[in-house]
C-alpha cells in the first residue's frame, strides 16, 4: 500500500469577504523554522492593499452600525469556529514558530480565549469609556466612544497567531474595520484565520488579510488618506518611524510598537486606542 499523497492548500488573501490571489500574481515561499518549505503565500502588492482599504471602508458603515450585542455574538462565533479547528492551528503555529506541539497548543488556546475576552467587551466598552458630564448649565451632556474607522494593522512578526488575534480582535470589536498585514515570515496561521472569519458571520470587508513584505504593504497603508489609524505592533523601529511620519499626512491615530508579552492579560489599552469620543449636548427645558 502506498502512502496517501496529501492535498496541499493554496493560501490566498482575504479581501472584502473573498479569497483572491494577489492581483500581482506573485507568491513567496514560506518555510518553517528550520527552513523547510511549507507553502507559497501570496506576495500582495500595493494595489492589493488599496483594494483592501476600499473593502474595509465599504464595510465600516454596516459593521460600526451593528449593535454591540451583534458584534459580540460574532466575535464569540469566531472563538467557536476556532475551537473546532484547534488541531489545524496548533500544527500551523508549531510549524510557523518552531514551537513544540504543547507550546503551540497553548498559543492557540490563548488565542481562542482572547476572542472570548474581547467578544465580551463589545457591549461594555462604551460604559467604561463614556461619561455623563455634569456641565454647569441646563444641558444634557453625554460622551460616548465610537470606532475610529479603517485601521491598518501591522501584525506582530514574532507571534504569528496569538499576537495577530491580540491586535485584531480589539480593533474590530468596537466597530472598526481592519486591513491586516500578516507576519511576513509566518503568514500561514493568519491566512487560515481568514477561513475561520469567513465562516463566523463576520461581514465581508470587516477584516482584510494580506501577506507579503511588511514594508512594501504597510507603506501605502500608512500613507493612504482613507485609513484612519495605524497599529504598528509588527513594525521595527526604523519602519515604525517611517510609517508614523507618513501617517501624519492625514493625522492617523498611531499605536506605536512596544515590547509585549502576548500571553499576558491584554487589558483595555488596545481596545481604547482606536476609539473616538463623541460628546453630545442638548438643552433641557420646557
Amino acid at each position: 500500500m502506498s502512502e496517501r499523497l496529501a492535498v496541499f492548500k493554496t493560501y490566498k488573501l482575504y479581501v472584502g469577504g473573498k479569497f483572491p490571489r494577489s492581483e500581482s500574481g506573485r507568491v513567496y515561499e514560506v518555510t518553517d523554522a528550520k527552513g523547510s518549505w511549507l507553502a507559497n503565500a501570496p506576495l500582495a502588492s500595493r494595489k492589493d492593499a488599496r483594494d483592501a482599504v476600499v473593502a474595509a471602508r465599504k464595510a465600516f458603515g454596516g459593521w460600526s452600525g451593528a449593535t454591540a450585542y451583534n458584534r459580540g455574538q460574532i466575535l464569540y462565533r469566531v472563538a467557536e469556529m476556532l475551537e473546532g479547528r484547534r488541531d489545524q492551528f496548533v500544527a500551523e503555529v508549531a510549524d510557523a514558530e518552531g514551537l513544540s506541539k504543547a507550546k503551540a497548543a497553548a498559543q492557540v488556546d490563548a488565542a481562542v480565549d482572547r476572542w472570548v475576552w474581547y467578544a465580551g467587551w463589545s457591549d461594555k466598552v462604551a460604559q467604561i469609556a463614556g461619561s455623563s458630564n455634569p456641565v454647569a448649565g441646563p444641558y444634557f451632556n453625554l460622551s460616548a466612544p465610537e470606532p475610529t474607522g479603517v485601521v491598518a494593522v501591522v501584525a506582530p512578526q514574532e507571534s504569528s497567531f496569538l499576537g495577530l488575534v491580540s491586535v485584531l480582535a480589539p480593533v474590530i470589536v468596537t466597530g472598526n474595520t481592519a486591513v491586516v498585514v500578516a507576519a511576513e515570515r509566518a503568514p500561514l496561521p493568519a491566512l487560515s484565520l481568514a477561513e475561520v472569519l469567513a465562516t463566523s458571520d463576520l461581514p465581508g470587508g470587516v477584516v482584510n488579510l494580506l501577506s507579503g513584505r511588511t514594508a512594501e504593504l504597510s507603506a501605502p497603508l500608512a500613507a493612504h488618506q482613507d485609513v484612519n489609524a495605524l497599529d504598528l505592533a509588527g513594525a521595527d523601529a526604523a519602519l515604525a518611524t517611517e510609517l508614523e511620519t507618513a501617517a501624519a499626512d492625514n493625522l492617523k491615530r498611531v499605536l506605536r510598537p512596544r515590547a509585549t508579552d502576548w500571553t499576558a492579560d491584554p487589558g483595555t489599552d488596545r481596545l481604547l486606542s482606536f476609539l473616538e469620543t463623541k460628546t453630545v449636548w442638548h438643552p433641557m427645558g420646557v
Binding site: 448649565g137 444641558y139 438643552p283 433641557m284
Partner: peptide, 10 residues
C-alpha cells in the same frame, strides 16, 4: 408655529 427652545430663548 416654530417651537421655542427654552434654554436658547433664556
Amino acid at each position: 408655529l416654530p417651537g421655542v427652545d427654552a434654554v436658547g430663548l433664556q
